[in-house]
Design a protein around this nucleic acid. Structure first.
Lengths: 297, 297
DNA sequence: GCATTACATAAATTAAAATTATCAATTTAA
DNA sequence: TTAAATTGATAATTTTAATTTATGTAATGC
């Protein structure tokens, strides 16, 4: 739309106030300057300067175009300069993970960002399949998921275990016939509830849970806001299965009990990246922050 | 430096992932796309994408260039759109005046800006000659000065009178031999002091003041911060001549006295603009605010 | 009022960019 | 495994755009 050469010529003309001097300074001929200005005026669809007997005067639009030209040149120069460097604490990092993992890693990432204000960390909470998809197509640089994707173009590094808890209202004291109790309470549903519950029942080491008929289970509520899933449980109106770390952040305290299963149930977390892509230096610090966050909790 | 056509081609390539599809979408041929990318890489002095067997993948720099291309296009479109309109309450207004006038008009301008946040009002305090000069060369859009400039290219509209006061310490009670008193106190100097004092003595209607030998007068201090000029006067260590409006804003209250001259001394204020320039719509409101400010005070 | 300065216009030249034609590499299907 | 198809790179030609030379016109100064 706006030819940058014309902008440069116009800016110089605005500064010198003379077509001839502009031509000299830019190593071109005077008619060239005239033509650049004319074409720029055509692009802008308005007059940029008025010819007075002595010298020229910019119109209001001419002034605006001059400002734009200056800023544009400066911006481009800055951009090209920083393009050459791979600053370790500067630029945009784009991650995706589940809501539960976000709860675990976001404080550490925020701290990192506070330490290096030029860092800009974007965390997107998304369902598993969309995370893998986004990393593959390159819109997300690092994904955290619970399995190693089959795709050859992706690499997966083991991070940590994510412990799953079965959360019950604290009012439930009799745990002898757990299946009946769960059936009475009903599941507080959320996007990952079915997956978590299936996993939990199969690996809790308790025969009764393994026989739980999940599809037939009553759904006593649904919410896709992680921090609010435990609310109905604390109110005594349902149960749910979630990563253990969620409880700390939600803070419903003594109203919630954790079912004491025979085995601890957990699933692994993997850090997924594009195998063919060399990530910029700033991801080193971010990756370290992620490791620290998931391993301490 | 960065050809916007190449940027557009590269951005489309980043989105389609295919040279051929990019060519189709931009109504060009496939070799054209190859050439654009190659030249863009030369401009950036780095590789922007790697050719994988299946499809392409952007390098880190390629991603940055893609972001830049997107932003640049959006920015230019926005700029060209707003260039066509002359919004009455949006944009930058640049004024210049004396410090005393700034004191009178700035509150009103600030109020205007508060009412229309998209307005950006810049007030530059400068000596008379520089104001006229700046308006002529177009770096200042509106100037306020105390005389009508001779220059044909400038227009001057009468605004109001600026009353001048001779400020004395309140401790001075005997005004019978004012020349002696002034000589004893000494002048608190500031950039416009000589000009104001000359004017005051010539038009006060008092013979003794008209005979005051200004060049021989003792200088008892100097400061070019308008709000601080009256400080030495209130402390009893000198006198000065200033626009009456300054006293209200400085607020030294009862420590300062105004000499009761036979005549009120004042000089006119003129609003100066470039005669050949049509100012944008937003200056209507600004000009009105200036009139209101100088006429009520 | 004539010379000088400064910008505009038109035609010609030169440079740049796009296309056509062709090649090489990779992928897909037989 | 090989032949056909797809996809991008390269080279030469054509087309388009930009620049310059030559010339004209208006304003300013001596």
């Amino acid at each position: 739309m706006l030819n940058p050469k014309y902008l440069k010529t116009f800016a110089t003309l605005a500064e010198t106030g003379s077509f001839t001097k502009t031509a000299e300074r830019l190593f071109m001929t005077q008619p060239g300057v005239s033509q650049h200005v004319k074409k720029l005026e055509q692009s802008c669809e308005c007059e940029l300067l008025v010819r007075l007997g002595k010298g020229i005067e910019l119109t209001e639009q001419g002034r605006q175009v001059y400002r734009y030209a200056q800023q544009d040149e400066a911006r481009q120069q800055r951009f090209l300069e920083q393009l050459k460097f791979d600053e370790p604490h500067q630029g945009r990092c784009i991650l995706a993970c589940s809501g539960a993992v976000a709860l675990r890693i976001y404080p550490g990432l925020t701290a990192l960002q506070a330490k290096y204000p030029a860092l800009s960390i974007h965390v997107e909470v998304a369902p598993r399949h969309r995370i893998v998809e986004s990393v593959k197509q390159g819109t997300i640089d690092i994904g955290i998921v619970t399995n190693t994707p089959a795709d050859e173009s992706l690499s997966a590094d083991y991070l940590a275990e994510e412990v799953l808890n079965l959360f019950l209202p604290a009012t439930v004291t009799d745990l002898t016939s757990i299946n009946t109790t769960l059936g009475r309470l009903g599941l507080v549903d959320h996007p990952d509830a079915a997956h978590y519950l299936q996993l939990y029942c199969n690996h809790s080491g308790e025969e009764s849970l393994a026989n739980l008929e999940i599809p037939k289970l009553k759904r006593s509520g649904y919410v896709n806001q992680l921090s609010q899933i435990l609310l109905p449980v604390s109110a005594g109106v349902g149960f749910t299965v979630l990563p253990a770390s969620v409880e700390k952040h939600a803070g419903h305290g003594s109203n919630i009990a954790v079912y004491p299963a025979a085995c601890t149930v957990s699933e692994p977390l993997y850090l997924v990246r594009s195998r063919h892509r060399k990530l910029p230096a700033r991801y080193a610090g971010v990756t370290k922050a992620i490791y620290d966050a998931v391993q301490q909790s």
